[in-house]
Design a protein around this nucleic acid. Structure first.
Lengths: 195, 195
DNA sequence: CTAACTGTTGATAGCGACTAACACTTGGGG
DNA sequence: CCCCAAGTGTTAGTCGCTATCAACAGTTAG
């Protein structure tokens, strides 16, 4: 049942991956050049040389085409690596800062462009918050596992507040057109939250 | 331009208000009995004895029919009443707690039912988060006005973190089917955030 | 090497949220 | 009493998204 009869190197898989990335690239290009709302799925599909049907076969919704890859597992691992007696907010601070720093140093420009698009498009912003809801529960679980306690109200508050602080920091960074040093802004945000 | 030629007591205005509240009531009833996604605007309109067009004349979207009335002005006023030297998070804590307590004591059951519906419906949750984005900016501005400072990163972090904590508290309250004492939960949440 | 199998795609049809254009009814003011 | 405008219904349309069916190409078994 689960045995992959087609190894990931097969021609079929490569073709599929190519179609997918073409759609994603064309979508981003169109969104940035003419706006998200005014771009139709039909246009994206045409630009990628496929039919609208194929678009939805690769992406469940129009919004999902611009979603970031899942950093959740990375963050969870970073949290579990923090010392157990460390305050939850401090642990979140360091784990999130570390994870973001990795993206910042390698993909700064892409991060700026995509974050700007997301934060300035209501539909994408809503989707982002929805993803954060899932991330929040992962963070809560990771915090509970680290300290050996239960995922109670305080841990959930820490997780949601930390994500809110991170998003706000990204918003400030984008508002300043990426002028400031993002890691420093993150530190400033968490410094305010847990002095 | 803005002069209300028709006083709010006119028959026309009363009819309009009546239609609006009928739509809202029927929508809520249908959402609770058969779910949000599976309820169509057409059904709501029929149940309210109007056409689908009329629905959209009163509410811009299907989601907006279940939106809470705007508590933002109330909260802003409560914030401005806090002593200027008080820590921003503490000021937000008391202002939000006070505002919520008013609703809690008078409309506890309605608050529970509506919050449950919103938090368990992805589309409504997204809309809630989108509203919070606007609320966040109002809170930031109110904090800045109170302290006479600028709406900088730290104030924005406080506002977003406080709203996240409040939402998380409501989620925990709803998960426990409204068993706990909501104001106590709010205090517990903010106690964790600013000890 | 061929035949059966499986995954990717396209065309068509359709639903539901939402909008625009036009005509009709009705309450309110002169 | 009559004209205006607010409120509504009808119709037709766009767009996101889904379901169904058929065609075709890559993969694998015999």
């Amino acid at each position: 049942m689960n045995g992959p009869a087609t190894p990931p190197e097969s021609l079929r898989a490569r073709k599929k991956a190519h179609t997918r990335s073409t759609i994603q690239a064309e979508a981003l290009r169109l969104f940035l050049s003419q706006g998200y709302e005014t771009t139709t799925v039909e246009q994206i599909a045409r630009a990628a040389g496929v039919s609208s049907m194929t678009f939805f076969r690769h992406f469940p919704t129009k919004e999902s085409v611009v979603e970031s890859d899942d950093y959740d597992p990375l963050i969870v691992r970073l949290i579990e690596r923090r010392p157990p007696q460390e305050h939850p907010l401090t642990a979140l601070h360091h784990a999130l800062a570390e994870g973001l720093a990795a993206v910042y140093t390698t993909d700064r420009e892409a991060l700026l462009v995509r974050t700007r698009l997301i934060l300035r498009t209501p539909a994408l912003r809503a989707r982002l918050r929805e993803n954060q809801h899932a991330t929040e529960q992962m963070l809560t679980a990771a915090l509970a596992a680290r300290s050996g306690g239960e995922p109670d109200l305080s841990l959930r508050v820490y997780a949601s507040a930390a994500l809110a602080a991170l998003t706000t920091t990204l918003a400030v960074w984008v508002d300043g057109d990426g002028e400031g040093h993002l890691p420093a802004l993150v530190d400033e945000a968490f410094l305010a939250l847990c002095p």
